[in-house]
Design a protein around this nucleic acid. Structure first.
Length: 537
RNA sequence: GCGGGUGUAGCUCAGUGGUAGAGCGUCACGUUGCCAACGUGAAUGUCGUCGGUUCGAAUCCGAUCACCCGCUCCA
């Protein structure tokens, strides 16, 4: 990362703090890692982003790939749900996943997945071949360790210290009471100190030995009810999606929707991240804007492509129009467990100053197939009875899901980064180039000077406009200073009442980016703002 | 979790063992005639926190917290 981009992120963070966009949570007590508060302007910005999403997704008038209007309804689910929800979703197996850290490559692996992963690894395949007939061929093993093994499993005990490892293996063979399976054979090859530590569990990635398994779960735990008892454990949701899936039947039964349709939700989610990083980008408490769009399985491809393109265009429309925004189709091997066989997964990514020249995820669009609805059907015990009945097709099925899942905080952060525009020529040295739709303040209202009836006219205009728009009136200090302040918080328009206003009933409106001014009739100012904020331009 | 860096007013920083400072910003009053004008005045600090050394610590030592950077992690 270059110094200029690092520097720039620091400047953005400083501006966020200085102008009241984002503060560290509980800062007066030294803060808390991974939690952030939004100040006056920041909360407006984030609210504008969420409102824009909700208006366009839930209240929008989109036409889908089939030519039909796109039907979407909203829900607002609880943060704490029945813990079984998270068993069904795969977020928790029992109550805690055991995780092991590799002592060599430091990677974290789910302990119950270790052998599955080892069996899929190329170095395991090579070693099982060498043990195909159940005979230990030491010279062949040493040869492998000195050549291929160095690349495939650099931290395997056999590779690091063949003599010692093979001597333990020889001891085991000499003992020879029971036959040795290939798994135990490999464990021997992964163990350097058998007498002291016993047989090691090999790291699937590098062959190194895995440390003692520890319970590890990224979900926050809490207790429901005042009694402290393990049976009362519940979790703060790590994603909002499951509330939607768990309510699928409720929504279908109560709101006359039929497939294809969507259920949308905006809400907080919590992940106890190992390392919160990069300002608000990876927080432990964050807000998601999630849509689960339910479709007939045969239409997955076209709806997936449609939503992917639609969501990409949406982010562009609210101000991420530059080439910092990209749409990236996932490779097959990085797909989540629920999406392996699907139509695909894409990320909409933004080039943040701290990821540059790389990109960070803003929104994922995934074809989750029927993974979630099926899982909940199985876990709640209703099973096949929960299949959706499609009247038009006269068919029962679990609908497939296209999930556009966006981060509200990441979105707000991307808007802040994109808007941040250094400009040495102006007093503030920087202005925030927000799209009028998301700008925290739409207009500043200024009497050019605080006399000759100008403040009174400004006050009257302020009273009128504030019913429909977030506007700020300021009569103090020089006009240049007031413009500069508005530049720094990204207010797109400044309305100035001057000495002529009383006579011609008109004001000047200064546009933030160009600093140009136009004269607008006093009674047309509201319409002017409407047009700029909601119009196409 | 590992390694490196940083921490003094809202911001940028000065202050290397002896009374916590400057500029900018903020606020008030005056002035004002379209881009941080000017004058006068004012407020603002657990020197990140806790502990130790010392007659005395922003300064030296230890721990800790937070942020930034590089790994790791993100099911």
């Amino acid at each position: 990362m270059s110094e200029t981009t690092t520097k720039r992120m620091e400047d953005i963070v400083a501006l966020c703090r200085r102008r009241g966009f984002i503060f560290q949570s509980s800062e007066i007590y030294g803060g808390i890692n991974g939690f952030w508060d939004y100040g006056p302007y920041g909360s407006e910005l984030k609210r504008n982003l969420k409102n824009a999403w909700w208006e366009d997704i839930v209240h929008g008038d989109m036409v889908g790939p089939t030519g039909e209007p796109v039907k979407i309804v909203g829900v607002d689910c609880t943060i704490i749900m029945n813990p079984k929800v998270w068993e069904a979703s795969g977020h928790v197996g029992g109550f805690a996943d055991m995780m092991s850290t590799c002592r060599h490559c430091k990677r974290l692996v789910r302990t119950d997945h270790v052998w599955d992963m080892v069996h899929e690894s190329p170095w395991f395949a090579a070693l099982s071949e060498l043990y195909a007939d159940g005979v230990v061929d030491s010279p062949a093993l040493v040869r492998w360790a000195q050549q291929k093994g160095k690349k495939l499993a650099p931290n395997l005990a056999l590779v690091r210290n063949p003599e010692v490892t093979l001597s333990w293996l020889a001891e085991r063979m000499a003992d020879g009471q029971t036959a040795m399976g290939v798994q135990e054979f490999v464990q021997h090859l992964a163990s350097e100190q058998v007498a002291r530590d016993g047989l090691a569990l090999p790291c699937p990635h590098c062959g190194g030995d895995l440390a003692e398994p520890k319970p590890f779960n990224l979900m926050f735990k809490t207790l429901v009810g005042a009694v402290e008892d393990p049976s009362n454990i519940a979790y703060l949701r790590p994603e909002t999606a499951q509330g939607i899936f768990a309510n699928f039947d409720n929504v279908v039964d109560s709101s006359r929707v039929k497939v294809p349709f969507g259920i949308a939700q905006i809400g907080k989610a919590f992940r106890n991240e190992v390392t919160p990083r990069n300002f608000t980008f990876r927080s432990r408490e964050f807000e998601q804007m999630e849509l689960e769009f339910f479709i007939h399985p045969s239409e997955a491809e076209q709806w997936y492509a449609w939503w992917r393109d639609n969501r990409y265009a949406w982010w562009k429309s609210i101000g991420l129009a530059g080439d910092n925004l990209i749409l990236r189709e996932h490779d097959r091997d990085e797909l989540a467990h629920y999406a392996k066989e699907g139509a695909g997964t894409s990320d909409i990514e933004y080039r943040f100053p701290f990821t540059a020249p790389g990109f960070g995820e803003l929104e994922g669009v995934a074809h989750r197939a029927d993974f979630d609805l099926k899982a909940h059907a199985e876990h709640c015990g209703k099973g096949e009875k929960m299949r959706y009945f499609d009247q038009a097709r006269n068919e029962r099925y679990f609908p497939h899901v296209i999930e556009p899942s966006a981060g509200a905080d990441r979105g707000a952060l991307a808007l802040l980064c994109e808007a941040y525009t250094p400009d040495e020529s102006r007093a503030s040295k920087v202005f925030m180039n927000f799209h009028p739709r998301v700008a925290p303040v739409k207009a500043g209202i200024f009497p050019l000077v605080a006399k000759d009836g100008m403040p009174e006219i400004a006050e009257k205009l302020h009273k009128e406009l504030r019913r429909r728009h977030v506007v700020e009136m300021d009569a103090k200090q020089s006009i240049g200073k007031r413009y500069a302040r508005m530049d720094e918080c990204g207010t797109p328009y400044c309305i100035t009442i001057d000495g002529d206003t009383a006579n011609d009933q008109a004001v000047t409106i200064r546009e933030r980016n160009t600093q140009s001014q136009e004269r607008v009739a006093l009674d047309k100012v509201g319409a002017f703002l409407d047009e700029k904020i909601h119009g196409d331009s």
